[in-house]
Design a protein around this nucleic acid. Structure first.
Lengths: 355, 355
DNA sequence: GTGGATCACGCAATCGTTTGTGCAAAGTAT
DNA sequence: ATACTTTGCACAAACGATTGCGTGATCCAC
């Protein structure tokens, strides 16, 4: 079944550069130059005929270069590290898939670590990735207040941010402010003057900017949203449930809800139901991210669509530019509003009657 | 701000073994033996005093070994590759988190690749991971029919399966057959005799076993579930919607639904709603996996709980045993049923009236 | 046909660790 | 004191790839 053991193969029996060189009757350095042509100018290649022969032999042997050995020599790993709060958050998982795909397309692989959105884990995760000698970092868990990104920059580590912005560091984010405004204008057009906001974590630019865009759009329409109508929360179902419970602790109830995250929006459904309110009938609910679930819920959820996959892809490309020493410019992806039944027909007057 | 450049540091300015050796006035080999003590018998270590001194210097320098260089020498990478259909599936993401955590606890890191449940991507992903010289593989996307695992075994590559079983290969899975039976017994106890099954992909043992357990439990109760009531689907919301649409294409309608995946169960909600049926009132719905969403949905979803995180952890431990040459025994995790409103009060008689 | 440029390739050092072997110094037994 | 074991460390050879430099051979112009 198995072929004869190759000469000069590695421990696992894989052909090495030497195997190919020996079979082609040339020196390993020639093989290396043929198989991993340096991009730099002034490097001389082999003749056409030798090149073809070497490539043919490498192909027939199924040679694949040992990235560990190459990495040792070049001190480049073709690896990028990705730090996310958690992969079980579908938003981050989708962004990560985008990063992963773009990286693959450029000969890179990705390494991911969860930070749980906690500083010790964040630092430990980054150090772990750096210990693995990643070429650069993509941070999906940056906080507004933290100096973590600053310290990375001081250390000269190439990185970009994704999803959340922080300071002036290069980042690929959605236009969260505009997204918040879209949600606000939609609810304003339906006549809602008393709205509640499930605002997400106060340290994440996503929630903060979406909330700001929403509040400002209301202000522009002459409506002030009091602080009591803005409740922070985690970006998940539990967070939405808890925040909405607080929002509905006393009357009058708002006639519409804006949650800065679809899962938080889903979390409000339980609360509403407990109060005898039906989303999409008695109260309007708008989420954010337009995750795959939004359209398929029992009550399809109106949501601000952000291209998460694209965000991941762009983030990798931005990091790649940075690694190549090219100028980097932050990228902002415009959102769109997808109106569905959770808000479509819920005009404010209907709700006011209920209260 | 920054300290003086270290002598014999690497390109990025990190201290190397040589830096430590030079400062301690000993040879690098001594430092290596102190800092990375070999487990093998017969290796001689340094004296207590030298050991302490070296460790102190390494600590103060913040030395961290270069895994690339170590990997080149030992041809071990302390890396395990994980192959999943997709990380945006929260079930796999949770399993992956479990793997990741367990790996970290043992000094390993993980590399993940998506296979999209397609054979070419599966092979490409595995080859990529192997090219990166992972020490072993954890496959979360094995199919029942495929010979992929067989071929890996023939090549002598250490691997274990997780979530899905295939052949006799070592695996960590939930007891899907028992889980299907739990769901069936619950619905039987509510008097449902005409049930539909959203069975998942025909190539995945999870869906197949859950369905078999369910069908067999019904058979035991003297009720035969016809093939027309068993519809295959993808393991996501869309799959649930499509499958349920087919199930309800003609009357009589089933009075209960068992979906082998929570997301597929959620997908049925849209269909049911379109037909004027309300899950938890007119029809009973049972899902599988008890994902975080299940409890928080507008209609909380009855679901079979499987410990996905634990599954991931155990899978890593199993792989570790295999890597250490210890005997490996497959592990089966028992499921439990969590009853919620989507089925709790839906007795069959109520539904029959509707039909 | 000679000088110089260019081409095609080999040589050898190197990346940072690990580990088999060698060898003094110290310890132990006689 | 001699012989013999143990201890504590240094030496050097790997691991597989990359790359600056050197060197013969070939080519072109004159």
């Amino acid at each position: 079944m198995s072929t004869d053991p190759l000469p000069f193969a590695d421990e696992a029996g894989r052909p090495t550069l030497r195997t190919v060189a020996e079979m082609a009757g040339v020196h390993v350095s020639t093989v290396s130059r043929v198989l991993a042509p340096s991009l730099r100018p002034g490097v001389r290649t082999a003749s056409k005929v030798t090149t073809e022969r070497i490539k043919a032999i490498a192909d027939s042997l199924g040679y694949s270069p040992n990235p560990i050995a190459a990495g040792l020599r070049t001190s480049r790993s073709s690896l990028v590290g990705v730090l996310v709060p958690r992969l079980t958050d579908i938003v981050l998982a989708t962004i990560y898939e985008g990063i992963h795909e773009a990286a693959r397309g450029h000969g890179y692989q990705t390494f991911v670590a969860n930070s749980e959105d906690r500083q010790p884990e964040r630092e430990a995760g980054a150090e772990m990735l750096l210990a693995r000698r990643v070429d650069g970092l993509i941070l999906g868990d940056c906080t507004l207040d933290s100096t973590f990104a600053d310290s990375l920059q001081q250390r000269g580590i190439p990185f970009v941010l994704v999803s959340r912005r922080s300071g002036k560091h290069p980042a690929v984010v959605g236009d969260d402010y505009a997204g918040g405004r879209l949600a606000a204008e939609h609810l304003l057009s339906l006549g809602h003057t008393d709205v509640g906001i499930i605002a997400g974590e106060a340290y994440a630019s996503t929630g903060v900017d979406r909330t700001a865009g929403f509040v400002d759009a209301y202000a522009k329409a002459g409506i002030n949203i009091p602080d009591s109508r803005i409740v922070h929360s985690s970006f998940d179902v539990i967070g939405g449930r808890e925040a909405s419970t607080r929002l509905f602790a006393s009357k009058p109830w708002p006639t519409a809800l804006f949650a800065v995250n679809d899962f938080a929006a889903i979390g409000t459904f339980g609360t509403l139901r407990g109060l005898g309110l039906r989303a999409g009938e008695d109260i309007a609910v708008v989420g954010y991210n337009d995750t795959v679930l939004a359209a398929e819920l029992p009550v399809p959820l109106t949501s601000v669509h952000s291209s998460m996959r694209e965000m991941g892809e762009k983030a990798f490309e931005l990091l790649l530019s940075r690694l190549n020493g090219e100028p980097v410019v932050s990228h902002i992806i415009p959102p769109t509003l997808v109106v569905r039944e959770s808000s479509a027909g819920v005009r404010s007057t209907l709700c006011i009657g209920k209260n």
